[in-house]
């Protein structure tokens, strides 16, 4: 191998990569905020007793879960402006696409968690004379949030990684910056290794945290 691995190129490019990481983190954070709130709403709608409320949201969820995220992102970038006449900057568009995708995955997590609330808990709520709204607020929501939390965190990290593909629609995130640096410096090994390590350094601790939360909740439930 004649390639001479030299990491000082990465040192030079470090500010660019950090700039990219900042964009990635913003994207991840904003998409997660959308998805955590919207996801719960979608979960409630998809569990509605009225089929014409339930059906479109079930379809929406299935559509986002059964197509590649890349296709979704590209579709948003090319088709939303044409179809709806909405012209957004790339960044809000990326947030919207990723946020909706994540919202559908989170909705599934919320739904599973709500369904896992033991029946006796609901019966107890009725027996204690809680109103339906009180039952949602005091019994269903706390149960569901606790049960869904590990999955919600995991989904959030997955989105952090998925967000790399907005680089393909020219948003200046970590992946995009990495590609630029690699091309300009002719140093793909150092650059992409550094980029991979940066992603890993962020997502690994959060993944550990999710595992810890899951164990804690298991213990609390046992």
């Amino acid at each position: 191998m004649e390639y001479d691995v030299q990491f000082h190129y990465v040192k030079q490019a470090w500010p660019y990569l950090m700039e990219g990481l900042w964009v990635t983190l913003q994207l991840t954070f904003a998409a997660n905020v959308i998805a955590l709130t919207l996801g719960f709403g979608i979960a409630l709608l998809v569990m509605s007793r009225l089929w014409f409320v339930r059906a479109p949201f079930a379809l929406l969820i299935e559509f986002f879960r059964c197509t590649p995220v890349l296709v979704q992102v590209i579709w948003f970038f090319y088709c939303v402006p044409i179809l709806f006449g909405v012209y957004l900057d790339p960044m809000p568009m990326g947030i919207l696409a990723l946020g909706l995708n994540l919202a559908c995955f989170n909705a599934e997590a919320y739904r599973a968690a709500i369904q896992a609330v033991p029946r006796e808990q609901m019966d107890a709520g009725v027996a204690l004379g809680f109103s339906p709204l009180q039952r949602v607020a005091y019994i269903i929501f706390p149960h569901a949030l606790r049960a869904a939390l590990p999955v919600l965190i995991t989904n959030g990290i997955t989105l952090f990684q998925q967000s790399a593909l907005v680089a393909l629609v020219a948003i200046g995130d970590l992946m995009y910056m990495g590609k630029q640096v690699a091309t300009q410096s002719y140093r793909p090994i150092e650059t992409f290794t550094a980029v991979a390590l940066i992603y890993f350094a962020v997502s690994f601790p959060v993944a550990r945290l999710a595992a810890l939360v899951e164990r804690r909740l298991d213990v609390a439930r046992a």
């Binding site: 390639y3 290794t193 980029v195 992603y199 993944a207």
Partner: peptide, 19 residues
């Protein structure tokens, strides 16, 4: 599991042949 597939893809496309 902790890095984007896209990064893995670029690494393998650009770096593996060099190695």
């Amino acid at each position: 599991r902790g890095t984007p597939v896209l990064v893995q893809l670029f690494w393998i496309f650009y770096c593996l042949p060099i190695f």
